[in-house]
Amino acid sequence: MHYPAFDTKEFYWYWGGGGHVGFWNGNDAVWADDNKSYTIIGADGILGLEYNFDEIPLNISLDWQPAINFVGHSGFWFDGGGLSIRYLFR
């Protein structure tokens, strides 16, 4: 979902959700038991702000991506985030 921000045509707030499935070996995670395989299933959220340049076909955004695992190593992961620079096809 996109909504105008700061009463401008360049800035937008966005939010959304989704899911994830992950597989890994215990040797690759600090908290996991060695020699054990893990599968996780959970839900993700995203909340961010983006800026669309008028002069050039680029977009830049900064977002927060919290997640919760329901299966496997369950818990809330609040430290996800991202910085994106995208080319816009107009």
Rank of each mutant, 00 (worst) to 15 (best):
D34G: 02
N35Y: 02
K36Y: 01
S37Y: 08
S37K: 11
S37P: 01
S37T: 09
Y38N: 01
Y38D: 00
T39W: 01
I40M: 09
I41L: 09
I41C: 03
I41A: 09
I41F: 05
A43E: 14
D44W: 00
D44K: 06
D44I: 00
D44P: 03
D44Q: 07
L47Q: 08
G48N: 10
G48R: 10
L49Q: 08
L49M: 11
L49W: 08
L49K: 07
L49F: 08
E50L: 15
Y51K: 12
N52F: 12
F53R: 01
D54T: 08
E55A: 13
I56W: 05
P57Q: 09
L58V: 14
N59Y: 02
N59T: 09
I60K: 14
I60D: 15
I60E: 11
L62V: 14
Q65Y: 02
I68M: 07
I68T: 08
I68P: 01
N69P: 03
F70E: 09
F70V: 04
V71P: 03
G72P: 04
G72R: 02
H73R: 05
G75L: 05
F76L: 14
F76K: 14
F78W: 10
D79C: 05
G82V: 00
G82D: 02
L83T: 06
L83Y: 06
L83Q: 06
S84P: 00
S84C: 04
I85D: 03
I85R: 04
I85N: 01
R86W: 08
R86V: 09
Y87G: 13
Y87F: 13
